[in-house]
């Protein structure tokens, strides 16, 4: 009884996952991810941090179903992931909005692809546009919006298909520092309203700690999980906690893990 409950509580599970690919130029096999074992619980906000080349984006793409595992499995709600699905939606690093579609039409894109356009889903799109703070911009085109606003559309588009798992691939990395911090705070507000299980990739340690319930630290060459750090900072969190000694301590802690990892690789 207890065992099944615990099992049901697991949203996403990666078991013995390897992802390898053939380098186009050299023709050699590259191990992008090696033996990834992790579980993400229902409603959790997980961040993955790690140096470039640690395979964090590869992992996200595999969860999204864009890449196939070479070994092992990824399962979502106890179902093995085999290609993209309606239960997942992704927020991209570049906004990837359709330039010929208005904000509203962009937000409805996923719904249209999945042939679920109805008054109900249209209302939902409107609700998410309001939630991300773009009420009044429904009929604007992407080029009329700032980078931060475009990323809000990107987020609203993903939320509107009502995924059970939200995948975020460094969505704020192209924004300026101030906008980025503001968007982090906004994301937490939206997350607390939707309670979607979220998997967020970043290379910024403070961003990861601020957002996450748990931070998975990835190491490079081959990409693998080197540590899992629990973030026991109560919610709701405002940006001031970034100056809290506990927060700074967590940054130091994750830095030291990454540094140790790099030293092992001889990158120092």
């Amino acid at each position: 009884m207890n065992g099944t409950q615990l099992k049901n509580n697991v949203k996403l599970s990666s078991k013995y996952l390897d992802v390898t690919y053939i380098n186009n130029k050299t023709g050699t096999e590259v191990i992008a991810l090696q033996n990834i074992n992790l579980d993400i619980k229902e409603g959790e906000f997980i961040c993955i941090v790690g140096p470039s080349g640690c395979g964090k984006t590869t992992f996200l793409n595999t969860v999204a179903g864009l890449l196939k595992p070479s070994r092992g499995t990824i399962s979502l709600d106890n179902q093995e992931v085999d290609g993209p699905g309606k239960d997942r939606a992704m927020v991209f690093q570049t906004p990837s909005l359709f330039p010929w579609r208005t904000v509203m039409a962009n937000v409805l894109y996923g719904i249209e692809v999945q042939k679920r356009v109805s008054n109900e889903t249209k209302k939902k799109a409107q609700d998410y546009i309001s939630m991300v703070g773009l009420k009044g911009y429904e009929h604007h085109y992407p080029h009329e919006l700032s980078g931060g606003m475009q990323q809000r559309v990107n987020l609203a588009r993903a939320l509107t298909v009502d995924p059970s798992l939200l995948l975020l691939d460094e969505p704020f990395s192209a924004l300026d520092a101030q906008t980025r911090e503001f968007m982090q705070e906004e994301l937490l507000r939206i997350w607390s309203e939707t309670k979607k299980t979220s998997l967020f990739i970043t290379h910024q340690i403070d961003e990861a700690i601020y957002l996450a319930d748990r931070v998975f630290v990835f190491g490079a060459r081959p990409g693998r999980v080197v540590d899992i750090v629990d973030i026991n900072i109560p919610r709701p969190r405002d940006l001031n906690i970034k100056r809290d000694p506990k927060f700074l301590h967590l940054i130091d802690h994750i830095w030291s893990i990454i540094e140790k990892e790099s030293a092992k690789q001889g990158f120092q």
Binding site: L66, P84, F92, S96, F98, Y109, Q114
Partner: peptide, 29 residues
């Protein structure tokens, strides 16, 4: 064609025909 748009379409479970109609054709205008 913008490969980022195609990737986005795929994650939303778009098939080849949908990618053609909803991304490729408008891009050609």
């Amino acid at each position: 064609l913008d490969q980022n748009l195609i990737k986005a379409a795929r994650t939303f479970t778009a098939n080849e025909l949908q990618i053609f109609k909803m991304i490729a054709l408008p891009s050609t205008v």
